[in-house]
Amino acid sequence: MINFFSLEAFKLRHKLRAWLGPLLIMILVLIAFPLSIDISQYDLNKFYFSVIVVSLLMISFLATESIFSEDYEDGSLEQIHLEEKDFYKITLAKILVHVLFIGIPMALIGSIFSFANGVSLAEAPKIFVILSISTLILFNVFAFGSALSINKGSMLGVVASLPLALPAIVLLGRGVRTVQYGQGFFEVSVLMAGVALIVTALMPIIISATLKTHLE
């Protein structure tokens, strides 16, 4: 498993476009929002979180768009199937590498921006924890979406996996609200961590079945 993890990290490190692109776009989105409409700082504090949440949703979709299509197109998926007979390990490795290299930085950017908009320094790490847990959930769900529509364009992936991502967003929203009102943070974050772990454990099984169907 470690070997798969290092192989995936090796591949992603060399593909700057897939790694850095989403992060830059996220920064752009978070900057563009306040510029587009001139809002008073007071209002901004109140609903800036929804901008961060929506951009997180959008960017995590963008980041996982070609997570499998590259290996599918150039035939490496077939080679893996010969050795491994199952894609569970490679899928888990891919998702974790993407979360580590793209998800966590995204959460970092999100919490920095939330800090710039009225969140005190003490609460910024809380935001970071919640955002990174939710990137884990979102990456799993959207990886499933991109596995479904592996070479048929990403629109199909979104239509299929967005309904599954929305409950996660509601959970994230609930978590963010606890930070704003300052209580109940621990319970919600533990709940989210639980959901994230279950999803991370189960989703690769479904994705591996999907990939096998594609290879048929």
Binding site: D74, E78, Q79
Partner: peptide, 11 residues
């Protein structure tokens, strides 16, 4: 196995 696709990374 070696099929039509070379299974090598272009980048």
């Amino acid at each position: 196995y070696l099929g039509h696709k070379n299974a090598i990374k272009h980048y």
